[in-house]
Design a protein around this nucleic acid. Structure first.
Length: 497
RNA sequence: GGCCCGUUGGUCAAGCGGUUAAGACUCCGGCCUUUCACGCCGGCAACACGAGUUCGAGUCUCGUACGGGUCACCA
C-alpha cells in the first residue's frame, strides 16, 4: 500500500478530547463484567463531554453467533448507555464492525514487515502450543523471524500461505503505564512473537485492537485485567508505528468466588438473566458500578447521571471483586421502592396477571401493597397467589400468641367481624379499617386479636403483603364474607371433632 | 514453571505515617405495628504472615504464604 493510503487513513482520525470505546466480541450474551466495562468507558467519555463508541470485535469467524450483535446493542440501549458511534448508527470512522474492516489490517501488518518490526511466517500452524501440555511454556524461536524481508514478501505475494508475526524485542524491558495499576515493567524476553495477521487474512484480536483504537482516535482504552500481560506488546506495536499510546485503564475481574471468575458456564447470571429474574436495569447498573469502584463518600445510590458526575478513575480498585447477589437484591428493592407508583404498576402488572385472573381484583391495589415489599419483580406471584384462590390452610394458623388468639377466640372474632362487615355498605379501606377498629374497641380486645384471625381467614397464609384491612378491601365484600364463613366453618368442625 | 498483579470483617469497601479502623449488604437482637415488609435503634465481625524503615505502620520497603491473570493463527 502506498504512503498516500496511510496518510489518508491518518487524516480521517477524529481528535476528540476524550474518545472511549466498548469493544465486545459478539458471544450471544452480555455478562456482568462486560456491562461494567461498557459502563466505565461510557462514564469516562461522558464525564469529559467526550464520545463513547461501540465497536464489534468479530475477527474470529469460527465463533460467529447469530443475533449476537443485536443483543449487545439492545443491552446497551436498554441500560441507557447510548453510544455516539457504532455499527448500527455509523460515525466518522465507520464501519464499526471489524469483519467489515478486514481489508484495513493487512496493509498495516505489511507496513510493519517493511519496517522490520514484523515478519512473514510460513510455518505450519502450531498445534502444539494450543494443547494441554502444561509443562510446555517455552517461548520458541520462530525460524521465519530471520528470513530476509524481500524474499519473504515475494513468497507471500506468490501465494504461499503465511501469518504475520510481531518481532518482539529480545533485550531490555518495557514499561506500561496504567491509570489504575501504575507502572508495570516486564522483561522483553518474556514477550512472544505474537501473530498479527492470521492465515485467513483477518487480524488477531490484539492487532485489530491496536489498529482500530488508533484509527478511531481512542484516547482511553478500558479493558479487563486479563489483557494486562498483553499490554507491553501493544506498546511495542504503537512504538513501531510511531503512534501515541492511549491511556490504559485496566479494571480487575468480577469473580463468582475467590477462585473463579463470573462465568455463564458456571451458571452465573448474564445481564439478560438478571432482567428475567426481575432486576431493574438501573439497579444492576448501580450495583455493578460499585463493584470495583468506590465514589469515596457514603452514598451508594447513583443514577446514571449521578455516576457521570461522580465517576473518577482514581476510585477504581486493583483487586478483583466478588459478585454478591444479596447486595444486588438490596439495590433492586431500593430502586423498586423509589419508583413512582404508576411506573411500578406497569412493571408489576405482568407478574400480577400471571396469577390473578379474577377481574374483580384491582391490579393497582395489589401493586400498591406490593411495592414496598418486593425485592425482585419475580417475587410477586408467590406473594399474592392467595388473592386468586384461598389456599387450603391449617387452622393452627389461627393460634398466635402475640395477638392473643387461639381457635376459639378466632372463631368468635370471625363471627363478629362477619356481622360488622356485612352491614358495611361503603367498601373502602377507611371504612373497613374504622369498622374493625371500632369492633375491637367494643369487644374490648386488642386490635391484633381481631385482625389476626380476619387476615388468616382472608388469606389462608401466615405471611401476607399488607394487613387484614388491605386484603379485605382488595378481595371485595362478597369474597370476604365467603372466606370468613369458610374460616368459621373450619374452626367449628375443627373443634367439634 | 516464567512473567505480571492482588491481599482491610462472610461480601462490597473507606482509609494515602498518628483514627475508638468509616459506611453498605448479610446475619442477630430490640422498637414501631393488624402478619410481613418499610422505617428507627443496637450488636457480631477485619488490616494474611514475618522482617525492616520510623518516635510511631493497615498505610513505606523487602521477603513468605495464599489467590488471580497470562504464556493460541480465541477474544
Amino acid at each position: 500500500m502506498d504512503k498516500k493510503w496511510f496518510d489518508d487513513m491518518e487524516a480521517k482520525i477524529p481528535h476528540g478530547n476524550v474518545r472511549t470505546r466498548f469493544a465486545p466480541s459478539p458471544t450471544g450474551y452480555m455478562h456482568v463484567g462486560g456491562l461494567r466495562t461498557a459502563l466505565y468507558a461510557y462514564l469516562i467519555a461522558k464525564k469529559a463531554g467526550g464520545t463513547f463508541i461501540l465497536r464489534i470485535e468479530d475477527t474470529d469467524t469460527a465463533r460467529f453467533v447469530e443475533g449476537a450483535v443485536e443483543i449487545i446493542i439492545k443491552t446497551l440501549n436498554g441500560a441507557g448507555l447510548f453510544y455516539d458511534e457504532g455499527p448500527d448508527i455509523g460515525g466518522p470512522v465507520a464501519p464499526y464492525t471489524q469483519s467489515e474492516r478486514r481489508d484495513l489490517y493487512k496493509p498495516y501488518a505489511e507496513l510493519l514487515c517493511e519496517k522490520g518490526a514484523a515478519y512473514y511466517c510460513f510455518c505450519e500452524q502450531n498445534e502444539a502450543s494450543k494443547d494441554n501440555d502444561e509443562s510446555n511454556f517455552e517461548l520458541k524461536n520462530d525460524p521465519c523471524r530471520e528470513l530476509p524481508y524481500e524474499s519473504s514478501k515475494e513468497r507471500a505475494d506468490a501465494g504461499q500461505l503465511f501469518v504475520i508475526r510481531m518481532k518482539a524485542p529480545k533485550d531490555g524491558e518495557t514499561t506500561v503505564v496504567d491509570a489504575v495499576f501504575g507502572d508495570i515493567t516486564t522483561p522483553n524476553k518474556t514477550m512472544d512473537d505474537m501473530v498479527l495477521l492470521k492465515r485467513d487474512g483477518l487480524p488477531t484480536y490484539n492487532f485489530a485492537n491496536v489498529i482500530d483504537d488508533h484509527l478511531m482516535g481512542i484516547t482511553h482504552v478500558m479493558r479487563g485485567s486479563e489483557y494486562i500481560s498483553s499490554a507491553p506488546k501493544y506498546n511495542v506495536l504503537y512504538k513501531a508505528f510511531g503512534w501515541e499510546i492511549p491511556t490504559y485503564i485496566t479494571v480487575s475481574l468480577i469473580m463468582r468466588d475467590a477462585q473463579n471468575k463470573l462465568s455463564k458456564r458456571h451458571g452465573d447470571p448474564t445481564y439478560d438473566d438478571l432482567l428475567a429474574q426481575g432486576f431493574l436495569p438501573e439497579a444492576i447498573l448501580n450495583y455493578v458500578a460499585l463493584l470495583g469502584w468506590s465514589p469515596g463518600g457514603e452514598n451508594e445510590i447513583f443514577s446514571l447521571k449521578d455516576l457521570i458526575k461522580a465517576f473518577d478513575v482514581s476510585g477504581i480498585s486493583k483487586s478483583p471483586a466478588i459478585f454478591d447477589i444479596n447486595k444486588l437484591i438490596h439495590f433492586n428493592s431500593e430502586y423498586i421502592r423509589a419508583l413512582p407508583p404508576e411506573k411500578f404498576i406497569g412493571l408489576a402488572r405482568p407478574y400480577i396477571n400471571e396469577v390473578i385472573k379474577n377481574k374483580d381484583i384491582s391490579t393497582e391495589a395489589v401493586a400498591g401493597i406490593l411495592q414496598a415489599r418486593c425485592e425482585k419483580l419475580s417475587d410477586i406471584p408467590e406473594k399474592i397467589d392467595f388473592f386468586e384462590k384461598l389456599p387450603d390452610y391449617d387452622t393452627e394458623l389461627y393460634i398466635h400468641k402475640k395477638s392473643k388468639t387461639d381457635k376459639m377466640i378466632s372463631r368468635d372474632m370471625l363471627i363478629e367481624a362477619k356481622k360488622a362487615l356485612e352491614k358495611l355498605t361503603d367498601w373502602t379501606s377507611e371504612a373497613i379499617h374504622d369498622t374493625l377498629i371500632t369492633l375491637a374497641l367494643t369487644l374490648e380486645v386488642k386490635n391484633a386479636t381481631l385482625m389476626w384471625p380476619v387476615r388468616i381467614a382472608a388469606a389462608g397464609k401466615a405471611v401476607t403483603p399488607g394487613g387484614a384491612v388491605e386484603i379485605c378491601f382488595i378481595l371485595g365484600k362478597d369474597e370476604i364474607i365467603r372466606r370468613l364463613d369458610i374460616g368459621i366453618e373450619r374452626l367449628n368442625s375443627d373443634h367439634g371433632g
